[in-house]
Design a protein around this nucleic acid. Sequence first.
DNA 1: CGATATCTTGAGCATTTTCAATAGTAGTGG
DNA 2: CCACTACTATTGAAAATGCTCAAGATATCG
Lengths: 197, 197
Amino acid sequence: MHHVNFQPKSTLFEQGDEAGSLYTLTSGTVRLHYDLPDGRRQIVGFAMPGDFLGLSLEPRFGITADALTPVTACRFDRHRFMNLIDKHPNLMRKMHEVASHELAIAQEHMVVLGRRRAEERVASFLLKWWQRLKRVQGNTPTLPLPMGRQDIADHLGLTIETVSRTLARWMRERIILDVPDGVRILDAAKLEDVLGN
Amino acid sequence: MHHVNFQPKSTLFEQGDEAGSLYTLTSGTVRLHYDLPDGRRQIVGFAMPGDFLGLSLEPRFGITADALTPVTACRFDRHRFMNLIDKHPNLMRKMHEVASHELAIAQEHMVVLGRRRAEERVASFLLKWWQRLKRVQGNTPTLPLPMGRQDIADHLGLTIETVSRTLARWMRERIILDVPDGVRILDAAKLEDVLGN
DNA sequence: CGATATCTTGAGCATTTTCAATAGTAGTGG
DNA sequence: CCACTACTATTGAAAATGCTCAAGATATCG
């Protein structure tokens, strides 16, 4: 195990690569995506400090992971990590807990992609990202968005224009406020109303 | 552990219920879905013989599971199963393998929901269902579809009309053939062409 | 055989995409 | 310091994919 650093836009691992490593993020934001041969891209999630990457037992990575900001992480060799697990059986349980939770998150996101309209998708994204940030950084009204508009669109199954228009409208309506590298949530209740639950 | 039977349309477990059981399917098909309060539904997957249900370690089920056909399954008490795991450590590893695989499947489905057009989604569904069936029943040109059109639509993030129209067109084009309770794949290559890879 | 579910098909419509033009923003080198 | 380039974001107008609504057909089941 040793610490590794990644520059923005650099790749931790790529879709199809042999899954030889396992990471835990200590700082920065990582984009996880599946790319189609014709260039279409689906961002299946964003990773932040505390998250695990590559804990799947599949022989190859199904997705690509690349850094959106400077990233620091702990890298483990897969084989060595598996030996470690034999000595600490509760570690395997922990891995499975994390994986089950990821699966639950993935299933919730399928609902967003399959059954939510554009406005609901963007509201869902802002609120979920805000919640995750709160658990790491504490309660802040200011929401950093290290990912670009295209990334948000590729996460929500929309085009960059639809994301831009939706955010622009909410800025006009004073529901959010434009700040450098992110937004400030002025009226979270209105965003929750959009989701209707 | 004991065997249990379910009639079509009966529920194995429901979204929000305490996750007290764990199942392995021995026969039949199960529909797994997440329901929004306003009635919109996303089917996150279908389970067939050999599949595990409720292996997540979250305290409550995130989704509902109900039988599409008569179903037989083995039911395990969660607590007792966990004790069993303490005696057989490689069982925990197996569970994690299954969960990782489910996660990979979920991520691939996100691509379908977020970035594929209607025609591609239906082609993807037919081909994936066909592949899964081959692993259980061997190579058959006839593809049973125990789920209804509305279920397919709810799985693909489409309306029943779009699914119906797409299948109807492929029947006219002799790419598939209408048979009772399913379809016969006449030209799998054409369906793969739709996916463009 | 009648009643209820599900499925199909058509026509019009709406949300979101596409296309295109403009405006920022950052980084680079003269 | 400023011009130049490249990249990203915004905005408008037109187009299209898939949806809604409605009617009819087919299947299922008591």
